[in-house]
Design a binder for these strands. Structure first.
Length: 390
RNA sequence: GCGGAUGUAGCUCAGUUGGCAGAGCACCUGGUUGUGGCCCAGGGGGUCGUGGGUUCAACCCCCAUCAUUCGCC
């Protein structure tokens, strides 16, 4: 929480509770207390919200996406506007995803080779080649605080042989990225672009370990676990998470990409993960699924049509302070723009409060209590998972 | 008043030579994990305007009637 300027990339651990850590990651745009949840703002905007909303929610860092911003409006255009921070009027840290996941999620459009990923734009069908170097140049043009290397994210069900080759490719790409950016480079003598590697390995423990081992020997500013939550059963995800997270360098931030539900997040923290991002709170907000101290509720349900109470009595967000469930349901059913905004405000409040509480509980040495409370709050999801004894 | 057209799910409409009544939307219930304001899955719901007739069998054929609508006096 310190406001004093520290060297970007510096990662200081303040407390440890079991495997869970409370730490601070310093960037060119300020410090990030961890564990942290990072709202996703794919095209330079957290959907339905303005930067002031995010400041009010105490969001500390948001995501942007290389693939999407490169296609529209273009990274060079953003650079000419002074970078993404200035363009989007956001002065806190920005982490940019590399586009590796889009190669996976838009896979009918892509071709992967040693050089990089050849893909077709979902906007106009035009062909583009993403190389590890190009992806970093784009992120640098955007002025990203935390850049992610290009990786190959393989779908659940990918064979052992393919996955084994894939992690080698991901490692080679990471090393090319490291060469392109040998250290945490300064930019305009002010902002730094930190660089995180992404470990892969599909659903094979030895490949997960091999991927970590290969990448961890190099000087990256942080290490991510990629390729989870790609359609696998929950127990499998938790097993691999518990297997992989402890292998990552302890003195660097650990980032579980694209995850997840509140239960996933506390499970990640329990296993020593520091950073999370997920579209779930914002996408579900737009689809009427809201996270509350009472569990997950679907605001479109008829039972809320005349419910005058607040969405979540224990929540202090603007939506909960001001509006009734009946009104929120009405806005959703009517597909009013305000529905997107109010629901997004609430869900992000929930996720950000969750990690704030997790951090405090780690400092206080009682993280396990919080973890158990979340397990009890989402019994269905917890029942579908097999918990590792850690 | 005369002539035509149309009445089928909440809405807009399909429905073959007469053979177990359908779609889209809406509605209800789930889902959504490094974001194409999407998408997916499941569900409830109709005395086929009404009354007769023909037929083993009628949303379908015949008669009457009511309603809506268009055109012409």
């Amino acid at each position: 929480m310190t406001q004093t300027k520290q060297r970007p990339g510096l990662f200081t651990i303040e407390a440890i509770d079991g495997a869970a850590r409370a730490a601070t990651l310093h960037t060119g745009h300020g410090a990030i207390p961890t564990p942290i949840f990072m709202p996703v703002g794919t095209v330079g905007s957290v959907k339905a919200l303005a930067p002031d909303d995010l400041y009010d929610l105490n969001a500390r860092v948001i995501l942007g996406n290389t693939y999407h911003l490169y296609l529209r409006p273009g990274d060079e255009l953003v650079a000419r506007r002074g970078g993404l921070h200035r363009f989007a009027a956001w002065d806190r840290p920005i982490l940019t995803d590399s586009g590796g996941y889009q190669a996976f999620s838009l896979s009918d459009l892509r071709k992967i080779s040693e050089g990089g990923v050849l893909f077709r734009s979902h906007l106009d069908g035009s062909k583009h080649l993403f190389t590890p170097e190009k992806v970093l140049q784009i992120q640098r043009n955007l002025g990203s605080d935390i850049m992610m290397v290009l990786d190959e994210c393989v779908p659940h069900g990918t064979s052992y042989d393919y996955t084994a080759k894939s992690i080698k490719l991901t490692t080679r790409w990471a090393l090319r990225s490291r060469e392109a950016f040998p250290a945490a480079l300064t930019r305009s003598g002010e902002a730094y672009n930190l660089l995180f590697a992404i470990t892969q390995g599909g659903f094979f423990k030895d490949l997960r370990a091999a991927s970590v081992e290969e990448l961890a020997q190099y000087d990256f500013d942080g290490f991510a676990i990629g390729g989870l939550s790609v359609g696998e059963p929950k127990p499998e995800m938790y097993e691999l998470l518990a297997h992989t997270a402890p292998l990552l360098p302890a003195d660097k931030p650990r980032y579980l990409m694209g995850v997840g539900t509140p239960l996933d997040i506390v499970t990640g923290i329990k296993n020593g993960v520091d950073m999370f991002d997920c579209v779930l709170p914002t996408r579900n907000a737009r689809n009427g699924t809201l996270y509350t101290s009472l569990g997950k509720i679907n605001i479109k349900r008829k039972e809320f049509a005349e419910d005058d109470g607040p969405l979540d009595p224990a929540c202090s967000c603007y939506s909960c302070r001001t509006f009734s469930r009946a009104y929120l349901r009405h806005l959703y059913v009517s597909q009013e723009l305000l529905s997107f905004r109010l629901n997004s405000l609430h869900n992000l409040t929930y996720f950000l409060d969750l990690v704030t509480k997790a951090r405090q509980s780690i400092i206080d040495g009682c993280f396990e209590t919080l973890y158990r409370a979340i397990v009890e709050l989402y019994p269905d999801e917890a029942a579908s998972a097999v918990f590792q004894s850690i």
